[in-house]
Amino acid sequence: MKPDKPAKQLQAFFDEAGRIARFTGWYFRQAIRPRYEFKELIRQCFIIGYQSLGLVVLTGFIMGLVLTMQLRPTLVDYGVESQIPAMVAIAVVREIGPVITALIFAGKIGSSIGAELGSMRVTEQIDAMEVSGTNPYKYLVVTRVTAATLMLPILVLLSDTISLYGAYLGVNIKTVTSPDLFIWQVFDVLDFTDLMPAFIKTFFFGFAVGMIGCYKGYNSTKGTEGVGRSANSAVVLSSVMIFIIDLLVVQVTDIMGFN
């Protein structure tokens, strides 16, 4: 190994970070200036939200059911089986729901955006758009990032609800709990400080997934091989970003006294 390789890798890392920061900066500049691409934004909201619906519902249901089944033996040992709904609710709403849904979203939407824009770049469709009097950044990137930012929180709310339904069925596998009692136990333990930080962070997750997918696709090079690489690195990088944002949000909410 050459002695200067780590230094070059570090420089490449900071170069890439700088390019992503500049690409993100363009979003804020372009999003506020007319012309506004409302029609394309609504189309993207439909595509991004609808595409992920089935997967989010399925994983949310399994998440709630499995979590309940895994918690039961330990809580039975401690004699606090009645606390299952409360524990599952806290775990799902505060952490597992937003993070797992965001990771599923990154796999589904991040890769799709990366591959779509990457393919458009290498087949000159983005250039054709520019020649046709269209700002491709505004038409392709701003709409997709905004749609991802708006759709993920809705998907997380849906996933949390389905998870709690899965948890209700999980509780009723071995005992009998009425829906009223289950709902009362869930909402008795949840309050504003559980819901809001968890909900707000999903906007950041959605923004990161959309932005990284667009960045990787928009700057795709080297033909079809580059398209595959863009889709792959969009998923990897946005998954890492989800955990980094989660870590930052936990620190911030801790300082603000929400934990």
């Binding site: 393919s119 458009m120 000159e124 054709a128 009097g133």
Partner: peptide
Amino acid sequence: LDEIRVKIGFLFQSNALYD
């Protein structure tokens, strides 16, 4: 530039049709 582009057609090597 956009006004000039209306007057210039560009045929791309890869056709660049929107998929």
